[in-house]
Amino acid sequence: MSKRVLCELCPTECQLDNYQIGGCRTRINKDGVLLSLVYGKPCAVAVDPIEKKPFFHFLPATTAFSIATAGCVLGCKFCQNWQISQANPEETRNQDLPPEDVVRQAAYYGCRSITYTYTEPTVFYEYMFDTARIARKMNIRNTMHSCGYIKEKPLRLLAKYLDAADIDLKAFTEDFYSRICGGRLKPVLDSLVALKQEGVWLEITNLVIPTLNDDMKTIREMCRWIVKNLGPEVPIHFSRFFPHYRLKDLPPTPPETVLLARNTALEAGIKYAYIGNVRGEAENTYCPQCRKLLIERIGYMVNQNRLNNGRCKTCGTTVAGVWQ
């Protein structure tokens, strides 16, 4: 019955028997050949503000052409997009949008960047890779919002065409990853380091879930690891959890917890810590030196941007990010 195929894309490393589909739901072994079922078949296409990704230090107040296909390499119980991430590509309503058309449409809508997001871009790696190469030629930036659960070789290859990545660091314990997400923490940390080394602009999102990962000691540990391994200039977004999918029995995260996490991060030496899914001043960017307001945001909207060539107008301190 033909030979097995090893998928080397994500750390799950599925050994696929003939006609078996991987855990990501999108890759199949057909007679010994590994095929992607979702190449050029996005199930979600939209033009979003880049702040929604969330990227706060990357071309603020621009739009990102966002695409996603069905499937995910993880299976987080709290997934906000589980209707498509935990669906098979044959179940979702898909568009026909080859890489050239993605870039063409992005240009048509005046987007400065294309974001591979919503579900998990790793599962449509080939589609993302080809689109990114074309976009690079057309001077459109490439960003992804990923869980970082990808093996090093494909990640480094992709990084050549990637301008920014927002990685979901879902928690800082192996236990959380194995129990809640069906994955492991270590490969995600490795991915973060690899992206940093490849010079990709990095932001990190951490969804704070009551009782599961809201322990401030662990958050402090996580922030210290970030400062040590990725530097203090990596922005962190602490996001508020709302009950979804298989975690409907938990309450939404109290806004104070999210704020507390942000403060913990700042204390640990992180320069730019934000909150997500909660309105407040902690959505704004302040100068790490003189504490003056630099970018004022309300949700995904940028109210004012007082950065001058990536520097604070008042004290001239450079603020890390991609501003042009």
Partner: peptide, 8 residues
């Protein structure tokens, strides 16, 4: 009508 793009 899904694709059959060769995986890397």
């Amino acid at each position: 009508g899904l694709s059959g793009q060769k995986g890397m």
